[in-house]
Write a protein that binds this DNA or RNA. Structure first.
Length: 260
DNA sequence: CATAATGTTTAAGA
DNA sequence: GTCTTAAACATTAT
């Protein structure tokens, strides 16, 4: 589930490739990649991805000449650094062959993500309609944005233009650990709730990264492993309920997360 | 077989 | 302009 912690894992994968030179590019699913092997190679071959940058759920692999490849992972995409002799995944969309017997592969079971060629990374970042990364935002700015939003807090947290990186699963987790109801309006949170939300946001994301964004390694006190209506809340005896907000199915504990 | 799934974009209505 | 839902995208897992 590519949200901030997952994409952070992909960033680390890409970093393993950053000292090697790209020798060629294979496109396995042209209907998804949409850029020709020829154009990709013209811009990337012979260079190194030595400027790697993540902003929210977006990953940019840049070269020294300001060009870059922009990746978005949709719901099922991933990036992996692997040895050349490994079997090619049938979900592979394209791969960047390296001069060290490895390759960087982008794979996805569905077609919801994207791969784009960027002419000038700095210019591109300026125009991107994506807010500051959830791990970079300062508490005071976060609280200001909360005050200025009339949206439900779940929508606020998952709105990439407000804060970048939080999706459906981590949004639910952060609200669960902050004891805030997902439908509560952002601008009705008390200052204490706002501060708690900020703190839990940092904690949840950092903990998830420390555990390789792997749900099976998350603490038993978390909601994420129990995303199902009728499951027992890990904090009380209550039952987890489903809520549909901005088109996504969310989960919360009606006992622990009351509206005020 | 029907339904839901980690995401984004677009449209339409309040 | 803000915020909400619903639908669309394509494919897999339950």
């Amino acid at each position: 589930m590519p949200e901030l912690p997952d994409v952070e894992m992909f960033r680390k994968e890409a970093e393993k490739a950053s000292r090697a030179k790209v020798t060629g590019i294979e496109v396995q699913d042209a209907s998804f990649v949409k850029i020709s092997k020829k154009d990709l190679e013209k811009q990337i071959a012979g260079k190194k991805f030595n400027r790697i940058l993540r902003k929210g759920k977006n990953l940019f692999l840049g070269t020294s000449d300001h060009h870059a490849v922009a990746f978005h992972f949709g719901m099922t995409g991933f990036l992996g650094y692997e040895q050349n002799d490994e079997e090619v995944s049938k979900y592979m969309k394209c791969s960047f062959e390296l001069d060290n017997n490895h390759r960087l592969i982008y794979a996805s079971k569905r077609k919801l993500g994207s791969i784009k060629l960027i002419e000038d990374l700095e210019e591109h970042l300026k125009k991107l309609d994506v807010g500051i990364d959830a791990l970079e935002i300062k508490e005071t700015d976060f609280l200001d944005q909360l005050k200025n939003s009339n949206a439900m807090i779940k929508s606020f947290l998952t709105d990439q233009a407000e804060i970048a990186g939080i999706g459906n699963v981590y949004g639910d987790e952060i609200l669960f650990q902050s004891h805030i109801h997902p439908r509560q309006k952002a601008n009705t949170l008390s200052p204490e709730q706002g501060k708690k939300l900020f703190k839990q946001m940092q904690k949840v994301l950092k903990t998830a990264i420390n555990r390789q964004a792997d749900v099976s390694r998350f603490p038993a006190s978390w909601l994420a492993p129990r995303r199902k209506a009728g499951e027992k809340c890990p904090g009380c005896k209550g039952e987890i309920e489903k809520v549909k907000i901005s088109g996504r199915t969310g989960y919360y504990c009606p006992e622990c997360q009351k509206e005020n």
